[in-house]
Amino acid sequence: MKKLSEIGLTVAHLSAAFLLSNCAVFVTFEEPQPFFKKSETHFSKKFQGSYVNPLDPRILTITDSAILISSDWNIEVTPNASSPIFEVNSNRDNPALVPDQDMQRDKRIANKTWNRIDTIFSLSDHHILRQFKKDYFLNYRELDNYWYLEFMTLDKNDKLLISAMFIDDLIALEQEMPLKKMLNSNGEVIKVVLKPNKKQFKKLIRREDYRLTIFKAERINSN
């Protein structure tokens, strides 16, 4: 799977420690979901805008075709230190650190705030967006070629909710549909791979206990 530095806030890393400590495993799919819906080419205007959680300093922004997370970083710079901007911007694929202009002119400043922007979802062959009823489905294809799924919706108060799918009762899930278990070197199940039919998928997403909320925030502006 991707490194944290590459994907910022995707569910597989934000919640990994929590899930594993609770004997839960990730649910993955052989193809993007819902498999019976076409892929979307953009996020609707209803979702576009910026969102913030009062307990979290980061800001999530949804554009026409991407989801971004921005956060402020305090960086200490000594008189002999080079500015990080030249290292980070040498590769435009890396998250951008946007410097204050005074920082570039005067390296004697001991502390300065930089803004880091991470793209956590961007429409592509590896990031596929689909919609079913009120939910958006964010599909991430990882290095193992399986698809990891997140749900995104707006509640009645216009709060943004992003959830991940996991399972802690494999016996119950096996009774609902066939699944393939993926094991680690110790023989422990770390994820399952599903290929549900339409009826099975609809039943699966109705199960609230299969969802873990990883981001909840209020809108602060709209595009």
Rank of each mutant, 00 (worst) to 15 (best):
195 K>L: 09
30 E>W: 03
117 I>P: 00
164 A>G: 15
15 S>T: 09
204 L>A: 04
35 F>K: 05
109 I>Y: 03
36 F>W: 11
49 G>K: 05
155 D>R: 12
150 E>I: 08
169 D>Q: 09
124 S>R: 04
204 L>R: 01
94 N>L: 15
49 G>L: 03
180 K>I: 15
185 S>T: 10
207 R>W: 06
17 A>L: 03
155 D>G: 12
171 I>E: 11
144 D>C: 11
50 S>F: 04
77 V>F: 07
106 D>G: 06
109 I>E: 00
111 N>A: 02
11 V>Q: 01
29 F>Q: 01
137 F>Y: 15
20 L>I: 02
38 K>A: 14
182 M>D: 15
180 K>H: 14
168 D>H: 12
170 L>F: 09
70 S>E: 15
181 K>M: 15
222 S>R: 11
130 R>T: 14
27 V>N: 00
193 V>W: 03
70 S>F: 05
19 L>M: 12
57 P>M: 04
92 R>H: 11
58 R>G: 13
78 T>H: 12
31 E>A: 12
200 Q>Y: 04
89 N>E: 12
186 N>F: 13
218 E>C: 08
186 N>D: 15
97 L>G: 06
117 I>L: 10
147 W>N: 02
22 N>H: 14
178 P>N: 11
191 K>Y: 12
120 I>K: 01
161 L>R: 11
177 M>T: 08
189 V>Y: 01
170 L>T: 07
193 V>I: 15
211 R>D: 07
180 K>S: 14
85 I>Y: 13
1 M>F: 07
61 T>S: 15
183 L>M: 15
146 Y>R: 07
67 I>C: 08
121 F>P: 00
171 I>A: 10
5 S>C: 10
22 N>E: 13
99 P>A: 14
213 T>A: 15
125 D>V: 06
156 K>H: 10
99 P>Q: 09
151 F>H: 10
52 V>D: 02
178 P>A: 11
117 I>D: 01
64 D>Y: 06
51 Y>C: 07
193 V>G: 05
10 T>Q: 15
17 A>C: 03
16 A>S: 11
187 G>I: 09
41 T>E: 10
144 D>E: 13
155 D>F: 11
144 D>Q: 10
114 W>V: 09
149 L>M: 09
118 D>F: 00
103 M>I: 10
210 Y>R: 10
127 H>E: 00
100 D>S: 14
151 F>L: 14
134 K>H: 03
104 Q>F: 11
84 P>G: 08
174 E>C: 06
44 S>N: 09
82 S>I: 08
154 L>P: 05
125 D>C: 04
219 R>C: 08
99 P>K: 05
151 F>S: 07
41 T>L: 10
153 T>W: 06
137 F>V: 07
25 V>M: 06
144 D>H: 10
21 S>I: 00
148 Y>F: 12
43 F>R: 01
216 K>Y: 13
90 S>R: 09
198 K>W: 04
14 L>S: 09
96 A>N: 11
17 A>P: 00
177 M>Y: 05
47 F>E: 03
5 S>P: 02
122 S>E: 14
181 K>D: 12
92 R>Y: 12
214 I>W: 03
96 A>Y: 07
203 K>S: 12
140 Y>P: 01
149 L>I: 14
126 H>I: 05
172 A>K: 11
111 N>G: 02
101 Q>S: 14
59 I>G: 04
188 E>S: 13
